[in-house]
Simulated scan of single mutants.
Amino acid sequence: MTSTTFRIGGDLTVGRLGFGAMHLPTEKPEDAEAAIAVARRAVELGITLIDTAHMYGAGANEEVLAEALHPYPKDLLITTKVGVARSPETGEWALNGRPEVLRDQVDHALRRLRVDRLELLQLHRIDPETPLADQLGALRDLRDAGKVGRIGLSEVSVAELVEARETVDIASVQNRYNLTDREHEPVLTACEAAGIAFLPWRTVAWGKAGDRAEVAEVAAELDATPTQVCLAWLLDHSPVMLPIPGTSSIAHLEENTAAAGLALTPEQRARLNAIAGP
C-alpha cells in the first residue's frame, strides 16, 4: 500500500499531498479574505505541507499565510524559498544567491511567517553568478545558527544535486514535473536513491491534463476528474513524491485534495505511464 506520509530529512513527517500557495491573491487589500479562506480550508482538509516563497508577492504570500494560520498547528510545515530578488532600480526579479541577500531574505521570512526557525528552506534557483558552495554555505550557516532546520533546492539537475550535497545535506528538491512532462525523471531517480523529498510543481500541466484521451478514460473509470488522475499518478509514481498543486479556489482545492484517495489499478498505471514514452 502506498504511504500517505513522508519524512523530510528523515525526521519531519508530512502528508504527501501538499498545497502550493503561489496562486493565493495578495495584490489588493480585498484579496486577503479570499486567500485566507483558501489557506484555512487547506489545513481543514488535512494538508500539512504548504509551499511559499519570498518571490510570491515580495513576501506578501508569506504574510497572508501567517495571517490565516498563525499560531500554526503543530503538524503543519510551511516551507519557503529564497534566492530571487527584485531590483530596486528596475523592479524586475532576478536570481540573486549572494550570501548577504539570502541571509536578509531568511530574516524577513522569519518575521513574516512569525516563527523562530524555518523547518525547511529551499533555494529558489541556483544563481550562476555566485559559486554554489557560497550560496549553500550561507544556508548551512543559517541552519547551524538555528534559523533553518533543513535545506532544499529547486530546479536543479542531477549534477547540481550531487555538487550541492558536497556542501550540505539536501532534504528536498522542487522541480517542474507532471504526467506529460518528465524531463526531470533522472533527478527524481536520484532523489529516490538518496531518500530526498521531491516536490513537483506544475503538477497537472496547468489544467490541460484532460486533453489526453488516456487521462480522460481513466478519469471516467474512477469517477474522477483528469486533474485528480494526474495527482493520483504522481503519488503512485514514486514514494518520495510530494505534489504541491496550487489554486486560489476552494472548489479546486477540495478537488485536488480528494485525489489522495484515488487508487490506480496496475493496468491504469501502465496506460498512464505510457503517455510520455519510455
Rank of each mutant, 00 (worst) to 15 (best):
D107I: 00
R7E: 12
P131R: 06
G149F: 10
A58G: 07
V43T: 14
E67C: 13
R98I: 11
A34Q: 09
L102F: 06
V148E: 12
E160R: 08
V84F: 11
E221S: 13
A171D: 04
V187E: 10
V106R: 01
T5E: 13
A85R: 14
Q268W: 13
L199R: 05
T180A: 12
R165D: 13
R40Q: 14
R125N: 09
G20A: 07
G9A: 06
D31G: 02
V101F: 13
A171L: 00
V173D: 01
A58E: 13
A251Y: 01
W201A: 09
G207R: 12
S3H: 03
I275Y: 11
A260I: 04
S249R: 09
L45P: 07
H184T: 12
G83A: 08
A94G: 14
D75V: 01
D116A: 13
R112L: 02
V218F: 02
D181Q: 10
T225R: 01
T167K: 03
E119I: 00
G59S: 00
L253C: 05
D116T: 07
G149N: 12
E89K: 11
R112D: 06
A258N: 06
A145P: 09
A194C: 10
W201F: 15
T26Q: 04
L132C: 10
H184P: 02
E160Q: 15
M22W: 15
N273Q: 15
K208D: 12
V84R: 15
